[in-house]
C-alpha cells in the first residue's frame, strides 16, 4: 500500500503542476487558437483532477460543460472573430503586446506574487481535518428522497439556490438574445462523413443524457450533467448544418427554456401553501418531486445551452442609436 500512495502522490503532483503550466501557457501565448486548444486540454485535466478529489459529479459537469460546450463556444466565437478581423490568422503571432508599461507590468507581477503568498498562507492555516457539513448531509440523507448526497444537496437541502440558478440560465439566454439577434442557425454545409457520425452520435448522446438523469438519484449524475449532454447533442445537430427551426420565434422552444425554472417556482409556491415553507417536500413524495424537477430542469438546461451556442454567434440585432 505504501508504494501505491507514493505513485499516487507522484500522479497528483504531476497533474497539479501540469494544470498550472497549461494555464500559464494558455493565458500568455500570442496565438488565440493555441490558447483555445490549450483551454480544452485544461478542461480535460481538470476533469481528471475532480476524479482524484472524489468529485465525480463535478468531473461529469466539467467534461460536458467545461471542456465540451465551452470549448465549442470558444471555437465558434474564434471562427466568427476571424471573419471580422483579418489580422487573426491562426499560426501567426497576431496579438498586440500587452499595452502596459514595463514598470506597470512588474508592479502587477509583484502584486500577484504577494497575493498568492498571502492566500497560500491562509489556506495552509486551515485545520487539516474538518467535518464541514458532511455529517449534517449524511444524517438527513434518508429523508431527502434520494440516496446520492450531491443530488440531495442540489435539489433538496439547497434547492432554493438551484431555483435561482435556473433563473441565471434563463437570464443568460434572454441576455444573448437581446444582445445578438437570432436568425436561423449557422451555415448549412453537408459532409457525408460528419453526417453519418452525427447520426450515430446524437441518439447515443440522448440515451446517455436520460441515463445520467435517472442515475442521479443514487449515483453521480443528475439534471446539470444530463442537460448539458442534451445540449451537446443539439450543438452537434447544429454543427452538422441541420436546418433547425428558428429558435427565437418558436413558442415550443421558449416553453422548453422556461420549463425548468417554471417547475421550480410552481413547486415552491405549492409547497409554500401546503407545507408553509418553500420547496419543503413531504418526505413520502420527495423522490417524485425531485425526479419531476430534474426532468424539466434537464430539458431547460439542454435547450438553454444549445440556444446559447446558436445565439452567441449570430449577427447583432439592428439597433437605433438615437436615444441612448
Amino acid at each position: 500500500m505504501e508504494a501505491v500512495g507514493l505513485w499516487q502522490s507522484a500522479f497528483d503532483l504531476m497533474l497539479g503542476f501540469s494544470l498550472f503550466g497549461l494555464a500559464w501557457r494558455m493565458l500568455f501565448c500570442a496565438d488565440l487558437f493555441k490558447s483555445i486548444v490549450l483551454f480544452i486540454t485544461f478542461g480535460l485535466l481538470m476533469a481528471i483532477a475532480w476524479v482524484r478529489l472524489e468529485a465525480p459529479d463535478v468531473a461529469l459537469a466539467e467534461a460536458t460543460i467545461g471542456a465540451g460546450l465551452t470549448g465549442a463556444l470558444l471555437m465558434s466565437a474564434f471562427a466568427k472573430l476571424r471573419t471580422l478581423d483579418n489580422s487573426l490568422k491562426s499560426g501567426q503571432p497576431l496579438l498586440p503586446r500587452p499595452r502596459l508599461h514595463v514598470i506597470n507590468f512588474w508592479i502587477a507581477l509583484l502584486f500577484t506574487v504577494l497575493l498568492t503568498g498571502g492566500l497560500a498562507y491562509a489556506v495552509l492555516s486551515l485545520p487539516s481535518h474538518s467535518p464541514g457539513l458532511s455529517d449534517a448531509v449524511m444524517s438527513q440523507l434518508d429523508s431527502s428522497g434520494v440516496t446520492h448526497p450531491v443530488t440531495a444537496v442540489l435539489l433538496n437541502f439547497r434547492g432554493y439556490d438551484t431555483l435561482l440558478e435556473m433563473a441565471v440560465l434563463l437570464l443568460s439566454i434572454q441576455s444573448v438574445w437581446s444582445m445578438a439577434g437570432m436568425s436561423d442557425a449557422g451555415e448549412v454545409h453537408t459532409s457525408p462523413v460528419l453526417n453519418v457520425l452525427i447520426q450515430l452520435l446524437s441518439p447515443v448522446l440522448i440515451l446517455v443524457s436520460a441515463y445520467l438523469l435517472w442515475v442521479g438519484a443514487h449515483a453521480p449524475g443528475g439534471a446539470f450533467q444530463a442537460g448539458s449532454i442534451l445540449g451537446a447533442a443539439g450543438v452537434l445537430l447544429v454543427l452538422s448544418g441541420r436546418p433547425l427551426f428558428n429558435l427565437k420565434k418558436s413558442w415550443l422552444i421558449r416553453l422548453m427554456l422556461v420549463a425548468g425554472p417554471a417547475a421550480f417556482i410552481a413547486l415552491a409556491t405549492l409547497t409554500l401553501i401546503n407545507e408553509g415553507q418553500l420547496l419543503k417536500y413531504p418526505v413520502a413524495n420527495a423522490a417524485n418531486y425531485i425526479l419531476l424537477l430534474e426532468t424539466l430542469a434537464t430539458v431547460s438546461i439542454g435547450t438553454t445551452l444549445l440556444a446559447l451556442f446558436v445565439g452567441s454567434q449570430t449577427e447583432a440585432v439592428q439597433q437605433d442609436q438615437s436615444h441612448q
Binding site: 487558437f33 480544452i40 480535460l44 476533469a47 476524479v51 465525480p56 468531473a59 461529469l60 467534461a63 460536458t64 471542456a67 465540451g68 460546450l69 470549448g71 465549442a72 471555437m75 465558434s76 474564434f78 471562427a79 466568427k80 476571424r82 491562426s90 449557422g186 454545409h189 460528419l194 457520425l197 452525427i198 452520435l201 447515443v204 448522446l205 446517455v208 441515463y211 445520467l212 442515475v215 449515483a219 453521480p220 449524475g221 450533467q225 449532454i229 451537446a232 450543438v235 452537434l236 454543427l239 452538422s240 448544418g241
Partner: peptide
C-alpha cells in the same frame, strides 16, 4: 466509467466545431 463514457462522446464536439467553423 460514466465520466469516461461522457468524455469519449464529447471529445467529438470540439473537433466537429473546429472542422465546421475553422
Amino acid at each position: 466509467r460514466d465520466v469516461a463514457l461522457v468524455f469519449a462522446l464529447l471529445a467529438a464536439i470540439t473537433a466537429i466545431a473546429f472542422v465546421r467553423r475553422n
